[in-house]
């Protein structure tokens, strides 16, 4: 055993040194995107509408889901978050016409869907938010013939598609008019289908629906591709925030 070790000691040390060197080098910053933000002390989040459900930038006590996350992230990175409203966003089909450049924004948010088209332009960090329909309740889907509550809200999702899908699955839709109705229904142990942006009572489990029930996409923050260091820092902080949020949600 000692003989074998003596024979391999030198190569092992060499490879160890090389590995350490590479590990050390892999911590070099590949670009200046993070250091520039740190220097300015500001992190700019571009959104189409300051007061959408996801942002609610003017409601200091109850910020929207995405804004809350981003505030956490900014706090984590020791930066001041600045919300920039770009009214052009979403007005035209072609994003080039929105005229958003690196000069104005560090991060794009406020309802950016995690789509292939967006991924072609930006590095997307899914933020845990979803837009679309989700099923609320037990992990096992309800039996055929069960009554399933439906709360569509103001999201403007495809009702016709959903109802035909539910009929095909043998479920009876039970319309719920308000958020309060939904909360009551759920508390009574009922299953429901709702828009994913609906505020939910704590501890509610939500499950994705198949595409046949209505297209559902996750929401993401968009960063400029190639901003490796900033992306990395925000990804890490975001993960922490999301975990923290889930932890708090579970604790309640």
């Amino acid at each position: 055993m000692t003989k074998g070790w003596r024979r391999w000691r030198k190569p092992v040390i060499d490879i160890g040194v090389i590995t350490l060197l590479l590990v050390a080098l892999s911590h070099l910053p590949p670009d200046t995107s993070l250091s520039e933000r740190v220097e300015n002390g500001i992190l700019r989040l571009c959104v189409p509408d300051r007061n959408s459900e996801l942002i609610r930038a003017d409601d200091a006590t109850r910020p929207g889901y995405e804004l809350a996350l981003m505030q956490g992230v900014a706090r984590d990175l020791d930066l001041r978050l600045q919300v920039v409203e770009i009214a052009n966003m979403g007005r035209s089909f072609n994003p080039r016409d929105w005229q958003i450049g690196r000069g104005q924004c560090d991060i794009l948010g406020g309802g950016l869907a995690d789509s292939a088209a967006n991924r072609g332009f930006l590095t997307l960090l899914p933020n845990g938010g979803r837009i679309g329909l989700v099923r609320l309740g037990d992990s096992a889907p309800p039996a055929r013939g069960a009554k399933v509550g439906v709360f569509m809200g103001s999201a403007g999702l495809n009702r016709v598609q959903l109802s035909s899908w539910m009929r095909a699955g043998g479920w009876q839709p039970h319309p719920l008019a308000t958020k309060a109705d939904l909360a009551v229904w759920l508390r009574q142990g009922g299953e429901a289908i709702a828009s994913s942006l609906t505020p939910l009572p704590a501890g509610t489990l939500s499950h994705d629906l198949p595409a046949a029930a209505g297209e559902s996409t996750s929401l993401a923050f968009g960063l400029w591709r190639g901003d490796v260091t900033l992306t990395r820092a925000i990804r890490a902080a975001l993960q922490k925030e999301i975990q923290h949020k889930q932890f708090v949600a579970r604790a309640n």
Binding site: P95, R96, W98, G101, L122, G222, R225, G226
Partner: peptide
């Protein structure tokens, strides 16, 4: 090479990009 060329392949304007792939040059 990677770091040197990375800025030339990164996004500058949303909707306009030189590397039409969902990845950075690196």
């Amino acid at each position: 090479l990677g770091v040197g060329l990375n800025p030339y392949f990164r996004g500058e304007v949303f909707g306009e990009v030189r590397l039409v792939l969902p990845y950075s040059y690196l």
